[in-house]
């Protein structure tokens, strides 16, 4: 129980600040309206009005909560108005990209740890790849993968494939860095011991380097899955996509519906939380199997 107390305190603080900010930011509109109507506004009226505007600069938490409720529980999950539906679309791209990114990251790390030449040739490019803003290359990835029909080639929707590639682009890097560190984590004495058994390099990799890298891998996966979600959402922004949380945010901002935008934002945050939680659960199971101290 005491675990929740600090969380609740912080949450309460945020909500209070938020309401304050909502009043401050939305007041201008209220004053403008009142001035146009030629009347003055009292404090009570000001507070009430800033909480109930249709297109506020900053919606109040309860307004967002209402929209969130309506667009999840209030809709069929297959409806285009349902955030569950849009979340599902985004999650598919996230998980596909996450799987791809993890695969690429692990494979690259294995190559880099094994071959010095790859360390020198690949690593700089991997770092440079992360300095390029993702919003700059996302449209190119979408156009290119559509053009060459990558989706049909692997038997998936083009839209999903391009989003997954963008998600993979963001998520492979933390896996790469973590796995390099993990695969290099065994001490010299442990490698010497294997040498005294005449172990081959493949055996040393399978029996020592790989299991030793598991804790590093999971630390990376938690970062990577959040990055993959960001990638999937960014991938939905410039593509004229009509489905997915990113598309929902874009449409809402274009049509001036801040509540819808914030609701999509919150849905994305909740989705990220769930995904990280799932990775954490898998880690616990693996840890227990690998004899970690409870």
């Amino acid at each position: 129980m005491s675990r929740f107390v600090p969380v609740v305190i912080v949450l309460t603080g945020i909500v209070v600040l938020w309401y304050g900010a909502a009043i401050a930011l939305n007041a201008k509109w209220t004053y403008d309206q009142a001035e146009r109507a030629g009347r003055s506004v009292g404090l009570a009226e000001l507070v009430a009005d800033t909480m109930a505007q249709e297109r506020p600069v900053l919606p109040a938490p309860h307004q967002i909560a209402a929209v969130l409720w309506d667009s999840t529980a209030g809709q069929k999950v297959t409806s285009k108005k349902s955030l569950v539906y849009h979340g599902w679309v985004t999650m598919q791209a996230t998980l596909t990209g996450f799987a791809l990114g993890t695969l690429i990251g692990v494979a690259m790390a294995m190559g880099i740890v094994r071959y010095r030449v790859l360390d020198m040739s690949l690593m700089p490019w991997a770092i440079i790849s992360q300095t390029v803003p993702i919003v700059a290359i996302a449209p190119m990835i979408v156009v290119l993968s559509n053009k060459i029909g990558l989706g049909e080639a692997v038997g998936m929707e083009n839209r999903l494939v391009s989003k997954a590639i963008i998600a993979a682009y963001l998520s492979y890097f933390p896996v790469l860095v973590g796995m390099i560190k993990g695969l290099r984590s065994p001490e010299q004495a442990q490698l010497d011991l294997l040498t005294t058994y005449n172990a081959t390099e493949a055996q040393a990799f399978r029996k020592l380097r790989l299991p030793a890298s598991v804790p590093y891998l999971f630390a990376s996966l938690k970062v990577a899955i959040a990055a993959a979600l960001v990638g999937a959402i960014v991938g939905e922004l410039p593509t004229g996509a009509i489905e997915g949380l990113g598309a929902r945010m874009l449409v809402a901002s274009q049509f001036g519906q801040p509540m819808m935008m914030w609701a999509a934002l919150f849905a994305a945050a909740v989705l990220a939380g769930i995904l990280i939680l799932v990775v954490g659960q898998v880690q616990q199971v693996v840890d227990r199997r690998m004899g970690a101290r409870p």
Binding site: E187, A189, Q190, D192, L193, T196, K207, P211, V214, G291
Partner: peptide
Amino acid sequence: YGYVFQAAGLYPWRT
């Protein structure tokens, strides 16, 4: 030969 190092060097993930 069998070699015994100063640190036991047991793999923590193996029984």
